Simulated assay, not measured.
Amino acid sequence: MSSKKLKQCTKLLAISSQLLAVLLFSCNKDENDFDASGAFEAEETIISAEAAGALLQFAIEEGQVLEKGQVVGYIDSTQLFLKKKQLEAQVKATRSRTPDIQAQTGFYAQQAAVSQSRLNNLLKEQQRFESLVKADAATQKQLDDINAQVDEAQKELLVISRQKEAQVSALRTQSSSLSSDVLPLRAQIDQLNDQLAKCRIVNPMKGTVLTQYAEANEMASPGKPLYKIADLSTMILRAYITGNQLPVVKLNQKVTVLTDDGKGGYLQTQGTIIWINDKAEFTPKTIQTKDERANMVYATKIKVPNDGTFKIGMYGEVKF
């Protein structure tokens, strides 16, 4: 055999070896060396406006990380504020008509004090004349006159007391009526305070802004979506298993999650099964299962800590 033919045979043998290696690698790659597969998702929350008006300020961007309780914008609240000031003025005017019971009934106390002093003097005179009559130093008529004056003074004091009670009762009724008029005004003010608070757009949870639906200076209305947010520090891998795999999985079970590391290998992360669907569904077209003949599968959710590696929609595999 010539050297030329020898070189050609050697070259063909090398090519054949390479093709064989590729075929063997492909076969090994196609083998299901995982128990389930799926895609990553996050618990997304759409934040909507709770008040109507122009978005005077709305400073967020997609991809921005927001803290819980962070104020991200304001809705125009001028009319609500003016309405609140009007109601507060009505409350003040109504309360100014509330009577001062002590001031308006003070003269009764003065009259009662004068009458009581006069009665005390008459009672002393009554006792003195009773002693004089017993000693025959005064007549019975003089004692009767004193008794009549004492009786008159007692009745006068009683009349003053009843007049004061009647006046106090009337003033209390008036005060109660005015207080009743204030109650609905206070309720309206409380409603306005609640509406004013809702004009402040407060982020309810820590997370990353996924989608922004509104811009500053646009009109907002109750229920209008403003942005979508999700906590990406923990991701959910929605993986699918077949019916014969159900006995080997359970809630809170630790599993290994495999993702492409970009270097031809796999990145392994520990996850926890937090949900297993109790109803089967048709196998999604984009999902591979351990048993490729399975038409029906069960969805599971696997909670996986995320350091920024995993993205929504990213493919992942699971080993139990």
Rank of each mutant, 00 (worst) to 15 (best):
7 K>G: 03
269 T>Q: 05
48 S>L: 08
124 K>E: 13
52 A>Y: 06
182 V>L: 00
279 K>P: 00
81 F>L: 11
152 E>Y: 15
283 T>K: 04
308 G>P: 04
164 K>N: 10
83 K>A: 11
13 L>N: 14
208 T>D: 05
303 K>V: 10
125 E>S: 11
139 T>L: 02
118 R>A: 14
273 I>H: 00
235 M>H: 01
271 G>P: 07
229 I>Y: 00
60 I>T: 08
217 N>T: 15
42 A>Q: 03
36 A>E: 02
42 A>E: 06
137 A>C: 02
282 F>S: 12
267 L>T: 11
196 L>N: 08
232 L>W: 09
134 K>L: 12
20 L>G: 11
210 L>P: 06
181 D>L: 09
56 L>I: 15
189 I>W: 01
281 E>V: 08
302 I>H: 02
56 L>P: 09
29 K>H: 14
19 L>K: 09
210 L>R: 00
45 T>F: 02
106 G>W: 12
136 D>T: 14
278 D>A: 08
285 K>I: 10
305 P>N: 05
76 D>Q: 04
229 I>Q: 01
318 V>G: 01
50 E>I: 00
300 T>W: 01
292 E>K: 08
182 V>K: 00
10 T>C: 04
124 K>R: 09
302 I>A: 03
6 L>F: 02
125 E>D: 15
25 F>R: 06
52 A>V: 12
102 Q>C: 03
79 Q>E: 13
240 Y>I: 09
112 A>G: 14
201 I>C: 04
278 D>I: 05
259 T>W: 00
149 Q>S: 07
271 G>F: 07
161 S>A: 14
115 S>H: 10
21 A>V: 03
37 S>Q: 07
102 Q>E: 13
89 A>Q: 11
103 A>V: 14
